[in-house]
Structure formats: structure tokens, C-alpha cells
Design a protein around this nucleic acid. Sequence first.
DNA 1: TCGATTTTTGTAATCGATTACATCTTGAGG
DNA 2: CCTCAAGATGTAATCGATTACAAAAATCGA
Lengths: 356, 356
Amino acid sequence: MSRKRWRSVKEIRIADVARLAGVSTATVSRVLSDPDKVRKKTHDLVMEAVRRSGYIPNSTAQKLRTRRTMNVLVVAPRLTNPVFAEVLRGVDDELTESGYGIIIGNLDNRREREARYVDLALSRQVDGVLLLTGYIPGNGRRSMKEAGLPIVGMCAAIDDRSIPNVVVQDRESARRAVEYLVRLGHRRLGYISGTIGSIIETERYAGFCEGIAEAGLGAADFVRWEGPFVFSTGVAAAEGFLQMKERPTGIFAACDESAIGFIKRVRAERIRVPQDVSVIGFDGIEFADYTEPALTTFRQPLYELGRTGADVLMRMIGGEMRPEDWSIRLEPTLLERGTTGPVLHKDFASLRRSRM
Amino acid sequence: MSRKRWRSVKEIRIADVARLAGVSTATVSRVLSDPDKVRKKTHDLVMEAVRRSGYIPNSTAQKLRTRRTMNVLVVAPRLTNPVFAEVLRGVDDELTESGYGIIIGNLDNRREREARYVDLALSRQVDGVLLLTGYIPGNGRRSMKEAGLPIVGMCAAIDDRSIPNVVVQDRESARRAVEYLVRLGHRRLGYISGTIGSIIETERYAGFCEGIAEAGLGAADFVRWEGPFVFSTGVAAAEGFLQMKERPTGIFAACDESAIGFIKRVRAERIRVPQDVSVIGFDGIEFADYTEPALTTFRQPLYELGRTGADVLMRMIGGEMRPEDWSIRLEPTLLERGTTGPVLHKDFASLRRSRM
DNA sequence: TCGATTTTTGTAATCGATTACATCTTGAGG
DNA sequence: CCTCAAGATGTAATCGATTACAAAAATCGA
């Protein structure tokens, strides 16, 4: 039982430094925060005392007095998702430059966790909130807003017009994905969803449907498989695919992971990609560069998204929002690579012309 | 110029609640933290006032007074690395259960960032520190320890015997990887490194060398390629590999990413895995399940590592360390999958027997 | 050198909770 | 009904900084 009391070592306070330097605490504070306000000589005296004592201000006391925590809460649906990790990197870089820290709010796809982070925000542990998720429900957001907390949404079309939103054009890009598949000759499509109920999924599916409509196709021309944003969703979709008699020839997956899972599974049954079935993903995770062949996908400007969102939040906190910050949309770029190609023998039209 | 002052809305204080309920602030405080200490009737009275006013305690004030921040700093070398993301998930689950929050210290592989997080810790913004990295240098760690801050290392063999360490058996597993390749008949090996100077790399390479020695091989029997823990390191290694006349037949990569990068590149040159070259990775990231064939690798118990480390830290903070918490080693498991196999034609011995 | 002005420094209030200690209630037992 | 212990509540100090305001010191021009 090696019981041992941690903490409670020395703890140097500003008063100690003041005594050591023979000045008042006010002067020490000024030296540290606004050096121009004190005489050079006093400044040096105090700094020497600070150095000698190894004083570091207690930031909790600072926070209480100044009412600024220099922390931001970042709520993300799931940390291990590389998409969010990359956004977070952008956020981190931007915030660090402004001297802000990140408190992580990881929902890990569990809604019960929302409340915890709403409370955390409301108990003034942070100066602002970055929502990488649509999960925090309306009333949570509302109470944060009522508390005067700056919030920036970074999730496709959070349905709340009253908070600034920095997003990637999910819907429009999903529409373009369909357009792209149709241009390659695909007429029977498949849609692999993301987490049902998530806004990202909703947007992407809406875009998919727009694309279907624009191509003059209808509900009978595509099949939809559901599941969360993970590899195994693609595998499950593949199982469904394999059991169909008239299989789709073009698959749009709402995320790269499921696209990859799908491909892996159908390959095991000797179905070739893209000859037998074309697959397009979404997100452009690094991993998608290393599948064979490399996955065709929409690459989102994730890092930039993170930086931009954080920048807007910093502006809100600083009280200087510009109207053009209110709603920012970034555009993904289509990476045409190896998993998509023109329709071959499996398509009706082609069948008529050439067999196999 | 939509300038607008955020924050500064209502701000309900404990005094407001007290007035509303007709009691003192002390009583309100007690109701909220230690309900058994007050009479039922007063309790209800106060709770009603809390509800009506929507009071939420200012956690900064609480922290100052109680000298507990209920936050932990987690320093990681790089967020986008799925390995750390997974560890972080374990940490998060454990800490959340104890009511602790996470402040993220992302070094993003840049050493300059260390200082920032040491300061953050020393300014008492957190009650403890979890080091997922060996980067924080000795003097940083020392000052944190002197400040009485509980620290737990979660990085292979942080060279500091004075802080508890929860680690995965990197070295031993690397040794076993070599043993495994040798058992398959491989005599010419390749080693793809991780970030030079990182402790993880150092350990894994040491284990690799141990394995080489145990197999009765020497420095002439393997080649080493260097680079950070990323996909492209494997690609670069493959370039080197391709230019050799007598190529290794068994490759150990210090991380799955570089193993995958390697495979992707050599495949492009029609080299078959595992027939022409066996590849074994390290980490067992989820992605490695979805390559074709699935990557042979050592899967680290990352989630468990995170939970355990966080648990030990909680113990330290609570002042109840057990001796067996001091140093914990978790064991990775070998996943024998599709990228390794017995030596075929490329090996000297085999060549003698059968051509091609 | 003096007074007015500016610059520098100090005093003490403040941020919003917790909690030691004092005081007042309550209820049991005589 | 009274006493006394136990329990409930209130008062005020405290955590460690920042900062408004007051006071002191330095600077300047005449």
C-alpha cells in the first residue's frame, strides 16, 4: 500500500513573488501582463524574483477574475474517425495560435454524452463551442446560446439558422457523385448510408436523391443499405449486394470506410472493381490513397475546415464577426481514381450489344 | 460590420439562488454537493430555486476554491494517428466515468509544442498528466514532478524510472515478429523504421535486432529503411527494395501504415505478397483488416492501454497507488493473416530446389 | 524651486464558489 | 418543561489572481 499524497508541494503565489521583489502584487501582475506599464527597473526586479522563485500564475485564479478561460470545447461524434481527427488538427493549429486550448468533447456516437458537454459549456469552463456534430440537440444549443456562449457549427446544415455554420458542401457533392456515375453509364445504383439520423448522412442522402432525380431515374433504380460510418457497414452492404439477382453497377458510399469495406467483401467473391462494379466514396481519408486501386472519392478540405471554423469562433469571442463569416461553404474535390469506370457487361444496355 | 458583444448575458450566481430560496449561500452549496447535510425541506426549497433560476455553478470558482480542476492533460504526438486516437478513446471512457475531462495536448510531431503543455500543466489547469509520448523531455517532466503533479507515462520505456509507466511490450513483440519470419524460412530481412528518435521506434528496432541475433543472423542479413510513422515511409522503403538485386524476403514494418505503403508500391511492380515477399506490420489498426489480403501484424491492446493508464492516473490523483500499478505491461497479439507466408522461390535455399 | 502633469505604484475590492467555525434548532430523555 | 447533544444553518474567511481607484513619485516648464 504505497499511499502517498500527491500535489501540495510548494505552490508559489503572486504574493510570494511580490514579497521577494519588495513590491505589491499589483505590480507583479502588471509586469507579467502589461510590461509597458511599469518602470524598467521595477520590471527587471520583478522578473528576477519570478525567475528565482519559479513562479507560474495559477490560471484558475486568472480565469475566475478575468472571466476568460482561454479554452474552447470541441464536440465531435467520434475521435477515432480520421475525418474528425483531421478537422481537429486544423482547429488545434488555429486555436494554438490564438493561445486557446482544446477541451475535447467526444460523444463516441453515444447520445447520452451530450448532456455532459452542454453542462461543461454552461458551467463556464470554456469561452466557446465548436460543434463538429449535429448531435447536440436543439435545446442544448439553445441554452448555450442563451448563456451567451459563442458557438460555431461545423456540421452540414445544422438546422439552426441562428448560429454560424462552416461546412463542406456535402449535399452538392453527393449530387455530383451520382452525376459522375451516371455519366459513366451506370443506371442501377447503390447507396451505402452513414449513421442514420446524423445530419451528414441526411445531407449526403439528399444529394444522392437529387442526383437520381436529375438523371431521370427513380426509386426503383437504386437500392439503399444502412449502417453507421464504419468499415463493417460496407461489408454488410456487400452481403446485400451479393444476394441480388440484378445488381447495381455503381455504388456511392457515404464514407470511404464503408466503400473500402464493400470492395473488400465483393472482391472475396471474385467480383472485380471497377469492371464489375464501380465504387465511389466520400471524405478522402488518407487511407483511401492506399487501397488497390486507389479509391475514387470526394476529398473534403478537412484541415482547412477546422482552421476556418476555429477562426470564425475566435472572431465571435473577440466580438468582431463579419457578415461573411456567418455561413461558409467549402468545396470537396473529386478524385477520379481506380475504383470507378464505365459500365461493362453487367449493364442492361451493354448486355444487348455484347455478351460478357 | 455586425459587431456584437457575446457573453455577459445573465450569469446566475449562487448568491442569487440563496436569495431566491431565502437561505445562505453555504446552504445552497451544501444542497448541491452534500445533500445529506441539509434538512429535506430546505433541500427541496433550494432545488426548486435552482431549477427556477437555471443555476449552474461556475466551475472556475469551484476549481479555485477546491484546488481540483477535474481535468487531465493528455499529451499525444499526433492526433491523426489512429493508434493514439484509439488509446485516447480508452482514456476518455475511463476519465469520463470518474468525472474528469480531457485537455488535449497535440504535439503534431513538433517538439516546439512541448513547452506550451508543460506550462499548461504547471499553471495548474489540470490535476494530472498522461504522456502518450516520450517527447516531453526530461526537464519538462522533472518540473511537473517537482510541482507535485501526478504523471503517468504510456510510452514504451520512458527512460524515467520515477514515473509509473503503462506500456505495450514493444520490444518483445518486435523480437517475436522476427522469430516468426525466421520460422517461415526467411533469412534476408528488411526493417522499415518509425520516426527516428522516438522511443517507440527505438524499442521496436531494439527488439528487431534481438530477434536477428537470436536467429543467428547478423547486420549483413538485413536492410533498414528510415522514415516517420506514415504511409509514405513504406512507399519510400519499397523504392529502395525494388532497386536491390538480392531483395529481402521478409519485411518487418514498425507500423501498419508503412507496411501498407510498402505493399501498395511493390504490388505496382507485380511483386506478389506474400509469395514474393512477406510483410508484417505493427499496431493492428482497424485499417489493416481491410487491405487485401489482410495485413499480418501485432495488434496492440490500445483501448485497454488507454483505460489502464487513465485508471492508474486516477489512483495517483486519489492518493491511493498500489505498488502493482507502478509499471504495467500489456501484450500485443500476433494476427497471422495474408501478407506473410513461407519463403518460396526467391530464397537461396529454395532456388536450389526449384526454379520459379 | 514650485506647481501641474504624467507616470508609476500600492490598497483593497472583486471574481464565485467552498468550508471552518459559530450559532441557532430540534428532539430525546429525564 | 428543561437540558443537552446532535443536527441544521449562517457568517465570514479563503482560494489566487486582476484592476479601479487612490496615492506617491517622477518629470517638466516656468
